[in-house]
Design a binder for these strands. Sequence first.
DNA 1: GAGCACTGC
Length: 693
Amino acid sequence: MWSQFWKPGTEKARILEDEEGSVIFLSNSLSSSSSSSSEKQRQRLPVYKYRNAILYLVETNGTTIIVGETGSGKSTQIPQYLIEAGWGHGGRLIGCTQPRRLAVQAVASRVAQEMGVQLGEQVGYTIRFEDVTKPDVTVLKFLTDGVLLREMMDDPLLTKYSVIMVDEAHERSISTDILLGLLKKIQRRRPELRLIIASATIEAKSMSDFFRMRKKCREPENENSRLQLEPAILSVEGRSFNVQINYAEEPVQDYVQAVVSTVLSIHERESTGDVLVFLTGQDDIDAAIHLLNEEVQNNGKRSSGLVLLPLYSGLPRAEQELVFSPTPRGKRKVVISTNIAETSLTLEGIVYVVDSGFSKQRFYNPVSDIENLVVAPISRASARQRAGRAGRVRPGKCYRLYTEEYFLNQMPNDGIPEIQRSNLVSCVIQLKALGIDNILGFDWPASPSPEAMIRALEVLYSLGVLDDDAKLTSPIGFQVSEIPLDPMIAKMIIASNQFGCSEEIITIAAVLSIQSIWISGRGIQKESDEAKLRFAAAEGDHVTFLNVYKGFLQSNKSSQWCHKNYVNYQGMRKVIEVRQQLKRIAHRIGIVLKSCESDMQAVRKAVTAGFFANACSLEPYSHNGMYKTLRGSQEVYIHPSSVLFRVNPKWVIYNSLVSTDRQYMRNVITVDPSCLLEAAPHFYQLQQSNPLF
DNA sequence: GAGCACTGC
């Protein structure tokens, strides 16, 4: 049945060059004689018109960039076209990446269903903890871009793959950017590898510049010289409804207040349909809900029938799921959300969107080595994405709480790629492990600042992961690069081997790698604080985690036990998974699993070996618990969620900083100054004004 | 006295 379709090398489609030199295809008529209804449905997707064009471009161009709006069907259809065209023949694999696990699973099962095959046979997927593929049977593999990066450590040229499609490239996650940089390198060594970069925005031109092969790579008489060096760009329309955009007439002073009045006016004036509001974080969201609730009480008529639902990642799972429940008859659902609804979650039935124009974004300061979370204006690309959420079921409306003038003339066109806003230690070690020696010269889709790179190299050097020539050390550097966690955590795990506490440390590492093991929230603060005290250890949060883990195991991993103790059950399950993975890796890199029983001194020493750079001392005579970091004399405080909050020991080490109005240390453990010197003499002796002396 | 969102052999 597939024989009617065009195959590589069998016939040529028509191509036109436009004035910019990129390639546009004029679709020719397609015969469609399939009878299955699923096949019919596939043919109704907008991307179907471009099937032959896409296959022709992939055949003739090293890189094809596909701009597809939501609903175009690109993620599910293009991989199937590639199979139909034979790119999976002869033991070759077609790989399709997504930034998120959930998306990988969803797209893979959808495609398997459309093809009428069992998931895990011809069509499979791989995400962390889950490999649903069968060697030599699977020809189409969906995976997260992070997993593909890990695969490159074993097979740097990705020799098994004939085509790799990188989906959602416009999101510009760190993994996607590293992957794009590496794929470009691979392409020079393996011109037969085809890349498809799928993106939702028209930023395609800069992507195209990035993937353009330089002339000197071309060998005139090479058999590959027929291959186009210029990436092709093809744009596929989406299938969504018109969204009418309304702007604020004047700049908005207080966007929470503006959200409240906009929601009320939508409710008063507009026909039925749910509302999605984008705010920045839990504080804003709770404030808006509080104000709207007040309105309901004071002015029942105007606001009756509103169902107000908050949505953010920290919300317990059950409450998150409420936003998916159908709206009761005669009511209007108002979901007030963070950015989670912009990319990660899709809500059905939204007709009205209210866009505050802001989100919380991470920024990294390489001088202080601190990542900050700040409220910042979103980009035009984000604003369009938010507005698009209103047009999924029928024509909708978007209310932007900023002026049109601002949108057109002041709003940045695109967001700053994550790699330019982050600490780069993990990223640098991954490149080093792949044998990229000249990190500063690496060809990125968007280059991080040299300061951030140099800071990352310094941190890795101080951890003993890189040597004087910035090469991975043996064995520590190679071991650290094998562990899929922050290098400081990885170093802590490796150090636990010599202190005989690897069992405890991998538990701690697993807990530190999830958001939080505690359930908290506004109504239950007192209860959850009391529950926390039942596990609290004098050494600090890390040892407290060991107590929680022990209790969880003794309860037979019971969800009721978690509920009773205000422990996050989903989180604990994740801890068990991560812990199992770490056990396998530890075994592989030669770490002996051993428990130190009750010797918490060993645990503190191992933590210190990884996190000595995060040591702080309490300011003498400080009445408000102010600490200063030993390294940079930064002012920091113990986070109120820590068991050491208000205990304020003289010397502590923190796992991470969160900055709001103050810098808060999250996950804190006490430390002896002598251990610090022992763990990192090179690090602390260099500093003259050192309080340790 | 307080937490944008993702991710990884």
